[in-house]
Design a binder for these strands. Sequence first.
DNA 1: AACCAGGTCTCGA
DNA 2: TCGAGACCTGGT
Length: 272
Amino acid sequence: MDLGEIDLDHTLSCGQAFRWRKQEGLWKGIVAGDEVVLRKTGDEVDVQTSLSDRAVRQYFRCDDDTEAIFADIRKDRYVARLLRQYHGLRLLRQDPWECSASYILATYANVPRIIQMVEKVCRAFGTKLSEGTYAFPTPDQILKKRDRAGTCGLGYRCDRFVEFARSVHEGEVDFGSLKRASYLDCIRELVRFDGIGNKVADCVAIFSLDHLEAFPIDVRIGRVLEQRYGVQGSYRKVGAWAREHFGCYAGYAQEFIYYDQDARNRTVNKRR
DNA sequence: AACCAGGTCTCGA
DNA sequence: TCGAGACCTGGT
């Protein structure tokens, strides 16, 4: 399948999605309740899955005009370098429920632990797809066995997680309308839920609701903005600056910066 | 063995 | 609206 210019390693290991693993040169993941196996074959990607081509292309945001987007966020030397260095890094379009529930778990935890928590949740509640592989659970599946949540090592995120599942199950969230809403309205709605603050709301907005101007600011991004651009202040203020500077696709720039910081950490750890 | 993590919540100014 | 502290738990 032609997924456009994409580097699977960059795209699937950059920390935006938590259910992809590289095994023996293959990328294996679970998308929309289906197993997906990816293998790079020259310019194209061999995709093994029962998902439709349309669903796969939607997940990998093949509808994005990346050339135009990258041209638009190339506002300075730094981003220009990152675009070159991490050529083929793409954003994904994740399922809004899975994305928001996962990022509620992602607060104040490192990526390995987030992956661990999500995995435990899938094993505790999700539909078994094959030996050792489970789908991300639906809100309903979580509620039916809610007492199992305590065994997933979620810490103080546990109650928020179950409560959010209840909210979604009760129809208190309409992801479709959040997609159609303006970025600011979308964020305003999301932060009303326990466990979703500015940062998580931005992650959900960009990774699953097509609000590409969302610019999640974690500690690392905050440091880069301060040291490289001399910007600091409240979350709202810095975010507004980023959208002003990088434009309506600011979120794409954010992902390159985040990945670069992540890569730096990895090389530093290797030396030790 | 400490330190820290893709932050959020609560509370007070 | 903003800044300061507390916070489950496990990886490194």
